[in-house]
Nucleic acid binder design. Structure first.
Length: 218
DNA sequence: TAGGGTCTAGCGGTTACCAG
DNA sequence: CTGGTAACCGCTAGACCCTA
């Protein structure tokens, strides 16, 4: 039985010396193997868990060479990677489980939906129309619908169609359907609070900007 | 065969309409 | 009455393929 805690000081050292954008549990494990001349493959899960644990604790310790903001961002990035690694390790166990087409309600409920919480920047003239410069997307849609109903702008023959008034025309045009509403809205909404905000690595362009995001998981 | 890497569907929120 | 559909978004669980 290997006492993994023997390697804690070295894990800490690697974590503190590593670039959070590049470090992964796998890389740390491999570094340990090289440094100590051992094979940790049979203890992979335990080692990964220990690395994640040390990472969490390392967040409590100060680092002086970078700014607080930089530190916060790097920690968030690494935390995200390590958490994803932990999730994947968990989910991989169920790979043989019968496929489910839909996720359970429990899963959905345990995940606060980013779409509902994340604020988007509203550009002119929509911001003038709504009187807000940033709101969650769902709230923007709701506000627009409130306005439409308050002013009775739906086509009585086809209530999916919206006949825009003078205030709406510069933004939405003469008329639109409830489906194109979202499409038009998206023209005036931008991501997000700041340039370079963390985006999903799932799109091709993001992979270019965040190449490590797709390789960091274990 | 386990686990890493990549890809994709579904989540929530809004509404009205239509088919079963 | 209920569920599906339509538009849009970022994130993530889960599926699938590949590698060691």
């Amino acid at each position: 039985m290997v006492d993994l805690h023997t390697y804690v000081p070295m894990i800490d050292a690697i974590l503190s010396a590593s670039n959070p954008d590049e470090v992964t549990p796998k890389r740390i494990r491999k570094a340990l193997q090289e440094l100590f001349g051992i094979n940790l493959d049979t203890h992979r899960k335990e080692v990964n868990q220990l690395i994640i644990q040390r990472f969490e604790e390392s967040k409590q310790r100060p680092r002086y060479l970078i700014t607080k903001e930089e530190l916060r961002r790097k920690d968030e990035a690494l935390a995200s990677k390590l958490q994803t690694a932990a999730k994947r390790a968990k989910s991989s166990k169920s790979s043989s489980v019968k496929k489910k087409k839909k996720r359970s309600n429990n899963d959905a409920n345990s995940n606060p939906n980013a779409l509902n919480l994340r604020k988007v920047m509203i550009s002119e003239p929509l911001s003038g129309f709504l009187g807000e410069t940033s709101l969650p997307r769902t709230q923007i849609v709701k506000l627009v619908w409130d306005y439409i109903k308050d002013h009775n702008l739906q086509n009585p023959d086809d209530r999916r169609e919206i006949l825009c008034d003078d205030r709406m025309k510069p933004i939405f045009g003469e008329k639109m359907t409830m489906f194109t509403l979202n499409k038009i809205l998206s023209k005036y909404l931008s991501n997000s609070e700041e340039i370079g905000v963390k985006k999903s690595p799932s799109s091709p362009e993001d992979k270019l900007n965040f190449p490590e995001a797709s390789e960091a998981t274990e």
